[in-house]
Amino acid sequence: KLATQLLVDLAEGCHTHHFNSLLDIIEKVMARSLSPPPELEERDVAAYSASLEDVKTAVLGLLVILQTKLYTLPASHATRVYEMLVSHIQLHYKHSYTLPIASSIRLQAFDFLLLLRADSLHRLGLPNKDGVVRFSPYCVCDYMEPERGSEKKTSGPLSPPTGPPGPAPAGPAVRLGSVPYSLLFRVLLQCLKQESDWKVLKLVLGRLPESLRYKVLIFTSPCSVDQLCSALCSMLSGPKTLERLRGAPEGFSRTDLHLAVVPVLTALISYHNYLDKTKQREMVYCLEQGLIHRCASQCVVALSICSVEMPDIIIKALPVLVVKLTHISATASMAVPLLEFLSTLARLPHLYRNFAAEQYASVFAISLPYTNPSKFNQYIVCLAHHVIAMWFIRCRLPFRKDFVPFITKGLRSNVLLSFDDTPEKDSFRARSTSLNERPKSLRIARPPKQGLNNSPPVKEFKESSAAEAFRCRSISVSEHVVRSRIQTSLTSASLGSADENSVAQADDSLKN
């Protein structure tokens, strides 16, 4: 292990032709098999893994070397290190390495390699500790012929580059190093199909959405987006994914797998022009299946994007999809995704031109529960009313008269009656009930004795009459309010007539 670390330190600071010789020695160290011998017992696995620490030291050392060589000349050094790393990870899946030390190597290698970024000039870069990406002036992410390196360097940008540029090249004859992302992409596909350690798979799935944002990485080298989509959909639809995973937390289920895969599918929607129609349908189907899991909100957001990006695919699945959405409970976490999906859909009339009455009724059935102001915040309630109004205007004229009683009944049950079921009123009724029952229970537990009763009969009569009056008032709060309003209006009217009579009498006395 110490000798391997010494080789790594020497290679990191070497800029001459001896660098390749040092890498040859490190490569021989990495070539050791990580498969346990067949006769190895389970209690000896930890000791055997400790004997392979030099392999881990070599791989982690290459990660440090690549981070240094990416910004220094010659660029061919970075290319050689990158290829060695990718080849080593491929061996893991070729020979099915399952030892804990092998999983640790893959975890740290993917953690580093999935941080690679590219700008519009195809320059590769890595983020620093502050998250700012520094791009290399010597390494690009696409394949290029050595003699055409300078031509590639002087080509115009596709868009303004992001991030601070690296140091300027030493001279005009500098050759750019090619670090094609397709090599890593193929290893990522192998990981999605064969990885057995949940920690490694979770890391890859968590980092892929951010990497897919940099389309330069994908399009400048032959990366098959179709295969990526197929691998992701197979993970969700195939039963073998959960069987092969180990190291998963207790209670791990298909729902947890959906939570990890759906963000990658959402990021892949922007590549729909490069996906086969069959793959697009598979993607939409997987998102529909996710509606029954805890990732339902993410799936609804993804389907909203699909309705804009892939209208030809979503239009066929939309009638059944809208009916499925009615089975989702009206909760605060689902309110905004569902209502925004319906609001977006209302502005795309070509998608729902074939809707029948059942689909329009489903839209109103989804939106009406969110009009309850005692359960949802003001934004959700306003958005629900907006969706109902928009869809009522957009639905066909023959359907409107049939939906009017349905909508008014839903609004009455969710908006008007919600004020009668407020917690304050319920607590008031509970308190009044307890007050009504309390005197009775006290009389049963403690019967009054005439000799020891010091309270006069008049006081008892007053208290009983007050309790009886309170019971009468607490029967119905709404009736009490109505009666008080009527009494107030009658009182004001009587006072007004009394004032008029007094004024008339005063005038008569003055005349006399």
Rank of each mutant, 00 (worst) to 15 (best):
S49I: 07
S51T: 12
S51R: 07
S51K: 09
S51Y: 06
S51L: 06
L52C: 14
E53Y: 04
D54T: 01
D54N: 01
D54W: 01
D54V: 02
V55K: 00
V55E: 00
V55T: 05
V55D: 01
K56Q: 08
T57V: 10
T57M: 05
A58Q: 00
A58H: 00
L60A: 15
G61D: 01
G61Q: 01
G61M: 00
L62R: 00
L62M: 07
L63Q: 13
L63W: 03
V64Y: 06
V64P: 14
V64Q: 15
I65D: 01
I65F: 02
I65M: 08
L66A: 03
L66Y: 03
Q67D: 04
Q67Y: 04
Q67S: 08
K69E: 01
K69L: 01
T72I: 09
L73F: 11
L73I: 11
L73S: 12
A75P: 11
A75E: 06
A75V: 11
H77M: 05
H77C: 05
H77S: 04
H77F: 05
A78Q: 01
T79C: 14
V81A: 04
V81Y: 00
V81Q: 00
Y82L: 04
Y82E: 01
Y82C: 02
Y82K: 00
M84K: 04
M84D: 04
L85H: 00
V86D: 01
V86P: 00
S87F: 07
S87G: 13
S87L: 07
H88K: 00
I89T: 02
Q90I: 07
L91K: 11
L91D: 08
H92C: 00
H92A: 01
K94C: 10
K94F: 09
K94L: 07
H95D: 11
S96E: 13
Y97D: 01
T98C: 09
T98W: 07
L99M: 08
L99Y: 03
L99R: 01
P100Q: 06
P100S: 05
P100K: 04
P100M: 03
I101M: 07
A102I: 01
S104E: 13
S104N: 10
I105W: 00
R106T: 00
R106D: 00
L116M: 14
R117S: 05
A118D: 01
D119Y: 00
S120E: 13
S120A: 12
L121W: 11
H122V: 01
R123G: 02
L124Y: 04
G125W: 02
L126S: 05
P127H: 04
N128Q: 09
N128P: 03
N128M: 08
K129E: 15
D130C: 07
G131Q: 05
G131T: 03
V132P: 06
V133I: 13
V133E: 04
F135N: 03
S136Q: 02
S136W: 01
S136L: 01
S136V: 01
P137I: 03
P137C: 05
Y138M: 04
C139M: 10
D142G: 05
Y143W: 12
Y143G: 07
Y143K: 07
M144C: 09
E145D: 12
E145C: 07
E145T: 14
G149A: 13
S150A: 09
S150Y: 09
S150L: 11
S150R: 12
S150I: 13
K152H: 13
K152E: 13
K153P: 12
K153R: 11
K153I: 12
K153F: 13
S155V: 10
S155R: 11
G156Y: 13
G156W: 11
L158M: 10
L158P: 10
L158E: 13
L158R: 08
P160Y: 07
P160L: 12
T162V: 13
G163I: 12
G163H: 11
G163M: 13
P164S: 12
G166V: 13
G166P: 10
A173T: 11
R175D: 09
R175P: 11
R175I: 08
G177H: 15
V179C: 14
P180R: 06
P180V: 02
Y181Q: 02
S182Y: 08
S182I: 04
L183D: 11
L183Y: 11
L183R: 12
L184H: 03
L184T: 08
L184K: 01
L184W: 05
F185K: 01
F185C: 02
V187Q: 05
L188Q: 01
L188S: 03
L189M: 07
L189D: 02
L189F: 02
Q190A: 08
Q190T: 11
Q190N: 11
C191E: 00
C191Q: 00
K193L: 11
Q194I: 08
Q194K: 10
E195D: 03
E195Y: 00
E195A: 00
E195W: 00
S196A: 09
D197G: 00
W198V: 03
W198L: 03
W198T: 01
K199T: 15
K199Q: 15
V200P: 00
V200H: 02
L201T: 01
L201P: 00
L201R: 00
L201H: 01
L201C: 02
K202T: 04
V204P: 00
V204I: 05
L205V: 02
L205F: 02
G206W: 07
G206F: 08
R207V: 04
L208K: 00
L208Q: 01
P209S: 12
P209Q: 12
P209A: 13
P209H: 10
E210Y: 07
S211H: 06
S211C: 14
S211Y: 06
L212Y: 00
R213F: 05
Y214M: 06
Y214V: 04
Y214Q: 09
K215I: 01
V216A: 06
V216P: 06
V216H: 06
L217K: 03
F219M: 11
T220G: 06
S221A: 03
S221H: 03
S221P: 02
S221E: 03
P222C: 04
P222H: 06
P222F: 03
C223D: 04
V225H: 02
V225I: 08
V225K: 01
V225R: 01
Q227R: 06
L228Q: 00
L228H: 00
C229H: 03
C229N: 02
C229E: 03
C229L: 05
S230D: 13
S230M: 07
S230V: 07
S230T: 11
A231W: 01
L232F: 01
C233F: 07
S234Y: 07
S234W: 06
S234F: 05
S234D: 13
M235K: 01
M235E: 01
M235H: 01
L236Q: 01
G238H: 11
G238M: 07
G238S: 10
G238V: 06
P239Y: 11
K240N: 14
T241Y: 10
T241F: 10
L242K: 04
E243M: 05
R244K: 08
L245D: 02
L245P: 02
L245R: 02
L245S: 02
R246N: 08
R246L: 06
G247N: 11
G247D: 10
G247L: 05
G247W: 07
G247P: 05
A248E: 05
A248F: 11
A248S: 10
E250M: 10
E250H: 10
E250C: 08
G251D: 08
G251A: 07
G251E: 08
F252L: 12
F252P: 10
